[in-house]
Measured scan of single mutants.
Amino acid sequence: CHSECLGNCSQPDDPTKCVACRNFYLDGRCVETCPPPYYHFQDWRCVNFSFCQDLHHKCKNSRRQGCHQYVIHNNKCIPECPSGYTMNSSNLLCTPCLGPCPKVCHLLEGEKTIDSVTSAQELRGCTVINGSLIINIRGGNNLAAELEANLGLIEEISGYLKIRRSYALVSLSFFRKLRLIRGETLEIGNYSFYALDNQNLRQLWDWSKHNLTITQGKLFFHYNPKLCLSEIHKMEEVSGTKGRQERNDIALKTNGDQASCENELLKFSYIRTSFDKILLRWEPYWPPDFRDLLGFMLFYKEAPYQNVTEFDGQDACGSNSWTVVDIDPPLRSNDPKSQNHPGWLMRGLKPWTQYAIFVKTLVTFSDERRTYGAKSDIIYVQTDATNPSVPLDPISVSNSSSQIILKWKPPSDPNGNITHYLVFWERQAEDSELFELDYCLKGLKLPSRTWSPPFESEDSQKHNQSEYEDSAGECCSCPKTDSQILKELEESSFRKTFEDYLHNVVFVPRKT
């Protein structure tokens, strides 16, 4: 048989008469490798580009789960590009990614509803959504962080984005990388972005840091009482949809009607710091009717980097990364020049730590249904340095008659930039024990000054392991946590139920 035959053949030295091919099969003959313009397919066939392209389009058009959109890589027609490569849609070739590779997620039936953290986790790592997304989240724990972890990498949506009755959302900033909504599939009414009845939605994105392009379709905003109209108009300008909307697409009466839409800028007039305090004062603000001013709200939190936005980490279910302080308005003076500047002394802060701070007014709604208010920009203030805590785990070892090696770990709280350490030492008198000992005694162990690591005695271990207080009263049991108490109650309830079950099964009433 021919060298490319495997198993047997019907005619000697003829690659077209093989029972099976050793390498690849091409047009009725066995070959060692697939010549151009053919590609290896499933490690035994040679196919042309049209064959591989037909497989790709067949799966793409069917949208069946589990099928493969075949691509070409290293002269092979394979189910998908290997790690580190992405497909070129024009020629199906796998090309190296520039940075992290995109991950295209194809949605069944063309859309997916995100109504819980669990459903959001199914899209973790996706960068391109081939379909439409509907966000409908009523509640949950730590929602802002969970949504950002699972949806934060999405850069492109081919269909539309719909935010509907998501009472738990305060902001859409968890879509931190969303840059493009194509609108290839539109919501009824030709809408590519749809926001309806979101009672706590206050911000779409921080438009000073976020760009969003909507290729096709219109915007729809109705019944978002805490979303200011200025935020919607800003989205029109940034996304390129200005002029597409009709009169009733953006409701003037049901958007922002319960919001404090600040239209003035508060400026800080005085800032002073110490290692654990920050004193702030800002310019006074009074609405047209000074009785509408209820006070100020001061927001602050630790910020290692200057990239904080107002609604980071917030949701309507209680999660809030900001510390909020309510401040009463100052006494009002008739003389504008003698107006008191409101302020606040922030206490209990960490030394040498940068804080993000902003302040906003708290006002009631005027009778004319106009909203007044003022808010400052987010500023960054760093507390002063102070003395560091003591170095940890000092170790001293003498390696000769004239040297001592000293080692330690950095302090747990540096409280500033540590530039150097101060080492103090003092000579001590020799131990009298060394002169009084009889060095001729056998088995004498000389006193040693070398360091030995501390260890816990058996008594201390027994005390720590004991669940009861000892007789001397030195140790006591740790208080039980809520989960331990709940577990004990469940076990007790189970024992009672099981005992009742045994009584009912074992003891049967005697027939009379």
Score class of each variant (00 low, 15 high):
367 D>P: 06
209 K>P: 08
357 I>P: 01
194 Y>K: 09
383 T>Y: 00
211 N>A: 13
209 K>L: 06
219 L>M: 07
138 R>E: 12
117 V>F: 15
349 L>P: 01
179 R>H: 08
346 M>A: 10
186 L>S: 09
316 A>V: 02
342 P>N: 12
167 Y>A: 11
354 Q>K: 02
112 K>Y: 14
326 D>L: 01
409 K>F: 05
107 L>G: 06
257 D>Q: 02
173 S>V: 10
212 L>E: 00
210 H>A: 07
357 I>L: 15
251 A>D: 06
318 G>R: 12
141 N>A: 09
252 L>S: 11
211 N>M: 08
155 E>Q: 13
103 K>A: 13
143 L>S: 15
137 I>T: 15
383 T>P: 00
267 K>C: 14
177 K>E: 09
236 E>S: 12
400 S>V: 11
168 A>L: 11
390 V>L: 06
315 D>W: 15
110 G>T: 03
144 A>W: 14
265 L>K: 11
141 N>E: 14
210 H>T: 03
405 I>S: 04
403 Q>R: 05
252 L>N: 03
374 A>Q: 05
330 P>E: 12
139 G>N: 07
283 E>Y: 04
113 T>F: 14
167 Y>K: 15
269 S>A: 08
118 T>D: 04
257 D>H: 13
319 S>N: 07
128 V>Y: 12
363 V>P: 08
255 N>H: 03
242 K>V: 15
139 G>W: 03
118 T>K: 03
119 S>Y: 10
109 E>T: 13
294 L>A: 08
272 R>L: 07
149 A>M: 10
373 G>R: 06
135 I>S: 00
385 A>M: 14
327 I>L: 04
318 G>Q: 04
207 W>H: 06
399 N>I: 04
198 N>K: 00
349 L>Y: 00
302 E>I: 07
315 D>L: 06
135 I>P: 00
334 N>W: 08
240 G>Q: 15
174 F>I: 12
274 S>T: 12
323 T>E: 15
144 A>E: 15
346 M>G: 05
249 D>P: 06
178 L>Q: 00
317 C>K: 02
266 L>A: 02
210 H>N: 09
133 L>R: 00
352 W>P: 00
299 F>C: 02
282 W>N: 02
354 Q>M: 00
289 D>G: 09
215 T>C: 07
327 I>T: 03
138 R>S: 11
395 I>G: 11
209 K>V: 09
403 Q>Y: 10
175 F>P: 00
372 Y>D: 06
116 S>H: 11
290 F>T: 04
180 L>E: 15
266 L>Q: 03
378 I>P: 02
162 K>S: 13
311 F>K: 12
128 V>A: 15
320 N>D: 15
174 F>R: 01
393 D>W: 09
180 L>S: 07
216 Q>P: 02
350 K>F: 12
202 R>G: 15
249 D>Y: 08
390 V>T: 15
286 W>R: 07
283 E>F: 13
288 P>Y: 03
130 N>T: 15
214 I>G: 00
257 D>S: 02
217 G>K: 12
118 T>G: 06
326 D>K: 01
238 V>W: 13
362 L>C: 04
350 K>C: 07
201 L>S: 01
169 L>E: 02
251 A>N: 13
389 S>Q: 07
353 T>R: 05
105 C>R: 01
166 S>L: 04
259 A>P: 13
307 N>L: 13
106 H>A: 02
268 F>W: 06
341 H>A: 11
280 L>F: 07
228 C>Y: 02
163 I>H: 00
336 P>T: 04
387 N>H: 15
247 R>S: 10
249 D>T: 12
399 N>L: 10
267 K>H: 06
403 Q>T: 03
390 V>D: 15
171 S>R: 05
301 K>W: 06
295 G>N: 07
232 I>T: 10
271 I>Y: 10
292 D>E: 15
126 C>E: 00
251 A>I: 03
357 I>A: 07
183 G>S: 06
160 Y>N: 05
236 E>A: 12
394 P>K: 05
399 N>C: 15
127 T>P: 07
157 I>E: 00
261 C>V: 02
361 T>G: 06
350 K>Q: 14
362 L>N: 01
256 G>A: 14
273 T>I: 07
209 K>R: 09
360 K>P: 00
287 P>R: 11
244 R>V: 04
263 N>S: 04
343 G>P: 04
288 P>H: 03
346 M>Q: 05
304 P>G: 03
242 K>I: 05
247 R>Q: 13
411 P>V: 12
277 K>Y: 15
193 F>P: 00
134 I>M: 04
178 L>R: 00
177 K>D: 07
126 C>Y: 02
361 T>I: 14
284 P>I: 07
325 V>F: 07
187 E>L: 07
268 F>P: 03
401 S>Y: 10
153 L>R: 10
257 D>W: 11
324 V>F: 10
327 I>A: 11
174 F>T: 03
140 G>P: 14
130 N>Y: 03
391 P>I: 04
377 D>K: 05
268 F>T: 02
192 S>L: 00
362 L>T: 02
255 N>F: 09
384 D>P: 12
328 D>P: 14
393 D>K: 14
256 G>Q: 02
265 L>Q: 07
152 G>Q: 15
108 L>E: 14
288 P>Q: 04
116 S>P: 01
344 W>I: 01
341 H>R: 08
321 S>G: 10
212 L>Q: 03
383 T>W: 00
170 V>E: 08
146 E>D: 03
239 S>V: 12
380 Y>I: 02
255 N>W: 06
111 E>S: 02
231 E>K: 11
379 I>T: 05
319 S>T: 06
209 K>E: 08
344 W>Q: 05
262 E>R: 10
132 S>T: 09
302 E>F: 11
392 L>Y: 06
138 R>V: 02
339 Q>K: 12
137 I>F: 03
334 N>E: 02
338 S>A: 13
248 N>M: 08
341 H>M: 05
344 W>E: 03
131 G>S: 03
220 F>T: 15
237 E>Q: 12
264 E>F: 07
399 N>G: 12
182 R>F: 08
260 S>D: 05
200 N>T: 02
233 H>S: 13
287 P>I: 08
333 S>P: 08
172 L>G: 02
371 T>S: 09
359 V>R: 00
284 P>S: 04
254 T>N: 06
223 Y>G: 08
286 W>F: 13
393 D>I: 02
180 L>K: 09
240 G>T: 03
188 I>F: 05
133 L>G: 00
396 S>K: 09
109 E>K: 12
387 N>D: 02
170 V>W: 09
225 P>W: 01
169 L>Y: 08
235 M>F: 11
206 D>K: 13
175 F>K: 01
346 M>F: 12
380 Y>H: 01
282 W>A: 13
372 Y>P: 11
118 T>A: 04
348 G>L: 08
114 I>S: 00
289 D>T: 04
121 Q>K: 13
221 F>W: 02
213 T>R: 12
341 H>F: 06
195 A>H: 04
215 T>S: 07
298 L>H: 01
150 N>T: 03
121 Q>H: 11
109 E>L: 07
238 V>K: 07
279 L>P: 00
410 P>E: 07
151 L>H: 01
245 Q>C: 12
108 L>P: 14
215 T>F: 03
246 E>T: 07
230 S>K: 09
190 N>H: 15
408 W>T: 01
209 K>Y: 06
147 L>R: 01
